[in-house]
């Protein structure tokens, strides 16, 4: 199928300009919906990072000194093992290398933070699932005084609150994204319908002289695709540049509570690409629907 692209581009362009108000409305609603969607994804990444050390039921982390000797570490190993299963359900050891990997992941958006740390400065730790969650503070106090222990953290309540806060935010944002998306689709369909109506004479002549269905449809579908794409690019820009603000809505940094959460540019970029793909798809499908419905060929 040979479509001379100057023709298609000219038609798409003039379609978009003809009804500028509707086009802008479609683009803006698309952008709002996709921003909400992108925001959820960004926040989810932030929360996953904040809770990465506390997954699989871990409620207590015993951080050893970075300089702790191997005797101190194996001593802790044995002591913890002796408390299973009465007081502790299970424990696992996170060595320096693993801690360093985790650290770099959490601070991948902040090269300055990564620069001042290094593998040797990372504290190894024991991540423990207590037998009874309510005993965690007693256990923590007990280990705090052991030789070689830097600190014991048991932020169970904080983590649970953080996850709950995220779940609420996510549900609200997804409802907004879904609702506004319905509006955006309706507006895309409507702009295409208006464009088809405005060009009904041309369309009639095209059918008469034997233009193929796709030749007639493509300019209208490109119009919808463009609307989706432009809306998505706006949403992409918002979510990308506001990523740390969005992340901070869900909680604070797991290492340094006074610092906000970070989302790396890389992760935000992937989210943005996803958002753009969704926008383009919705635009194309919306206009595809409109073309099928209103452009009988």
């Amino acid at each position: 199928m040979a479509i001379p692209s100057p023709y298609v581009l000219r038609e798409t362009g003039s379609n978009l300009v003809r009804n500028i108000v509707m086009t802008v409305a479609a683009v803006v609603t698309m952008a709002v919906s996709l921003t909400a969607l992108g925001g959820v994804l960004i926040m989810r990444q932030a929360v996953n990072q904040a809770t990465v050390q506390y997954q699989h039921g871990v409620e207590m982390i015993i951080f050893m000194e970075a300089t702790a000797s191997s005797q101190e570490i194996s001593g802790m190993h044995q002591e913890l093992a002796s408390m299973v299963p009465g007081q502790i359900q299970r424990c696992y050891y996170v060595d320096k290398a693993h801690a360093w990997t985790e650290f770099k992941q959490i601070f991948s958006g902040e090269p300055d933070m990564v620069k001042v740390m290094d593998l040797q400065k990372m504290p190894p730790s024991f991540r423990c699932v207590p037998a009874k969650a309510q005993n965690v503070s007693v256990l923590a106090n007990q280990f705090q005084k052991q030789p070689g222990v830097l600190d014991v953290k048991y932020p169970g309540q904080a983590i649970r609150e953080e996850l709950a806060r995220f779940a609420t935010l996510r549900n609200v944002a997804l409802v907004v994204a879904g609702g506004v998306m319905l509006g955006a689709i309706a507006l895309v369909v409507n702009t295409i319908q208006l464009a088809i109506f405005a060009r009904r004479r041309e369309v009639a002549v095209m059918k008469l002289v034997g233009a193929t269905n796709w030749f007639i449809r493509v300019p209208f579908m490109l119009e919808g695709l463009t609307e989706g794409l432009v809306g998505a690019i706006i949403a992409f820009a918002v979510t990308f540049f506001a990523r740390n603000t969005l992340a901070s809505f869900t909680g604070s940094n797991p290492f340094v509570p006074s610092l906000p959460l970070y989302v790396s540019p890389h992760a935000a970029l992937l989210t943005g690409i996803f958002v753009v793909v969704v926008g383009a798809l919705v635009g194309a499908l919306g206009s595809g629907f409109a073309v099928r419905r209103f452009l009988s060929v």
Binding site: E202, A211, F215
Partner: peptide, 23 residues
């Protein structure tokens, strides 16, 4: 059934353009 915004030339050319005939 001519297209009112197009010239005589464009009206006739349109019939060829939309079936993919070369410029």
């Amino acid at each position: 059934r001519l297209l009112p915004e197009r010239t005589v030339y464009e009206n006739v050319a349109f019939a060829l353009e939309v079936i993919g005939r070369s410029r």
